[in-house]
Simulated assay, not measured.
Amino acid sequence: MSDAPRVLFWRHGRTAWNVEKRFQGQTDIDLDPVGHAQAERAGRLLATLRPDTVIASDLKRAADTAGYLGRSSGVPVEFDKGLRERFGGSWEGLTAAELAERWPAEHPRMEIPDGEHISEVGDRMVAAVDRGLAKTPPGGLLVIVSHGAALRVGISRMLGVPDERRELLGPLSNCCWSVLQARGQTWRLMEHNAASLPEPVVLSDDA
């Protein structure tokens, strides 16, 4: 087994606010029935990867999603507030259409006037991943259960992508995941926005 650690970043299942296209931020929204079904299915799949450590945001939609993996894998779920979604200030609870109407300049750039700066989100996400890796054995699998915006900036940071260019990485759908694996001192993106287990990779010359 390789000593290179892997980190699987898993977005929570669907909520009613996802359907309504409302900015959730740190408002503590429950999974809807579809979200629970998504998390149960994905949890059973991910359990077959035999995760060593599972750490989740303490917001209910992520915590409940992680619970399905914990029950399927037998790995206890730990919680880290550093994995919470970006705080959205006065944007939380508003629809995308309302945000575009009220903040026509800021909304396309996701510049929340009274919200958390994206650099702060990146800092705390990377710190939380580091704490998780410290609890994971060499060559092990760490599963991080979090939220769409927070995951995208966290993954981008680990790949060396500047915060302002995080849109280079496509969004994560509800209950989908991405996998990073270490190679020396850098990280490589092995999967993105996946909903099924990976196929074996036939190594190329530069692998």
Rank of each mutant, 00 (worst) to 15 (best):
M1I: 13
S2C: 06
A4D: 15
R6H: 07
R11E: 00
R11P: 05
H12R: 02
R14C: 10
T15H: 03
A16Q: 12
A16N: 11
N18L: 06
N18S: 06
E20K: 13
K21T: 00
G25N: 07
G25M: 02
D30A: 14
L31I: 11
L31E: 10
P33Q: 07
P33A: 07
G35A: 06
Q38C: 08
E40T: 10
E40S: 11
R41H: 13
R41Y: 10
R44M: 12
L46H: 06
T48E: 14
R50N: 13
R50P: 01
R50S: 14
P51Y: 04
P51T: 06
D52L: 07
D52Y: 05
T53A: 06
V54R: 01
I55W: 01
I55C: 02
K60R: 14
R61V: 08
R61C: 00
R61S: 02
R61M: 04
A62R: 00
A62Q: 00
A63L: 03
T65S: 14
T65Y: 02
G67H: 08
Y68C: 09
Y68L: 03
L69W: 04
S72Y: 10
V75G: 08
P76I: 09
V77D: 03
E78A: 15
D80I: 03
K81F: 10
G82C: 08
L83K: 04
E85R: 02
G88S: 08
G88C: 11
S90L: 11
W91I: 03
E92A: 07
L94A: 12
A97Y: 05
L99K: 01
L99M: 10
A100P: 06
E101R: 15
E101D: 14
R102D: 05
A105Q: 15
E106M: 05
H107V: 08
R109Y: 06
R109M: 09
R109V: 09
E111R: 15
E111S: 14
I112T: 08
P113V: 11
D114W: 04
D114P: 02
G115N: 07
E116N: 04
I118Q: 09
E120C: 08
E120N: 12
E120K: 12
M125F: 15
V126T: 12
A128Q: 00
A128P: 02
V129N: 00
D130M: 02
G132D: 00
L133P: 03
T136M: 00
P138C: 11
P138N: 10
L141H: 06
L141G: 06
I144V: 15
S146E: 00
G148L: 00
A149I: 12
L151H: 04
I155V: 15
S156R: 03
L159Q: 10
G160Y: 03
G160K: 01
P162D: 08
P162H: 08
P162Q: 08
P162V: 05
E164N: 12
R165L: 15
R165W: 14
L172F: 07
S173M: 11
C175A: 15
C176M: 11
S178M: 04
V179P: 01
A182T: 03
A182M: 08
A182D: 01
R183F: 13
G184C: 04
G184S: 00
Q185D: 15
W187R: 05
R188S: 12
L189Q: 09
E191V: 05
N193T: 04
N193P: 07
A194Y: 09
A195I: 12
S196C: 12
L197H: 12
P198W: 11
P198V: 10
P198M: 10
V201F: 14
V202L: 15
V202N: 12
V202I: 14
D205S: 15
A207G: 13
